[in-house]
Amino acid sequence: MPLSVQGLSKAFNGRTVLQGVDFSVSPGELVAFLGANGSGKSTTLRCVMGITAPDAGTISIAGTALDRLQGRELQQARQRMAMIFQKIHLVPRRTALDNVCAGALARIPTVRSLTPLLFPAEVQQEALDCLDRVGLADRAFDRVGRLSGGQQQRVAVARALCQRADVVLADEPVSALDPHAAEQVMALLRELAHSERIAVAAVLHQPDLALRYADRSIGLLHGSMSFDLPSTEVTAEHLNALYAPDRNLAA
């Protein structure tokens, strides 16, 4: 199993944010995390990413539990995960190709990574192939700042591919995009999950996108798992249960 999480718990200043979250993501599967603001879905992702340290629980990547690793081994295990961010986080002044090459930095010697001019030819070719996979090979030598938001997020996906990741974690990957670009990026993530056998976990704010594109949806409510079902089996009642508490508070 590329990514499996067991008994994940986290509290901030005594306030429980996550409580016993268990899930796993298989190769070739796109899993969506749904939940209201403060339900713990972002904290779950941040714990897996290693940005936030969990209080309890085990995170395993490709069968290796991360909590037993340290230093270089931990670093290498983490490199099998790539991240896609809501704010995209590419370098706007560099070309799409150079940004995608940066996904391979862990494989490039430091002296050859000081400027894109020194990037090894095989890395550049691989990066171009990755751009081709997301349908942007013709924009390889355009500055990223000149691409649209949807195209930029696809370049970020290509960067994750160039990292040769087994697991892709996406934190609200389409929240900053217009509806059409959001559909394109979700379709791309699903297609890559299926064709490249990557395990993709995405935090989403749009239940309709999740149900249409994700193979499986996980609902979080007050830091606990509310449901973990194939997307086709998620009903309106399931979703109401997730988002209703917010409405009750507002009323």
């Binding site: 983490r78 940066a102 990574s113 000081l114 990292q163």
Partner: peptide, 17 residues
């Protein structure tokens, strides 16, 4: 931050981001 999570070392992060 994105390059750090991709496994780039500090010099690589500064030079490429």
């Amino acid at each position: 931050e994105a390059l750090r999570t991709a496994g780039a070392n500090r010099i690589q992060q500064v030079a490429n981001a």
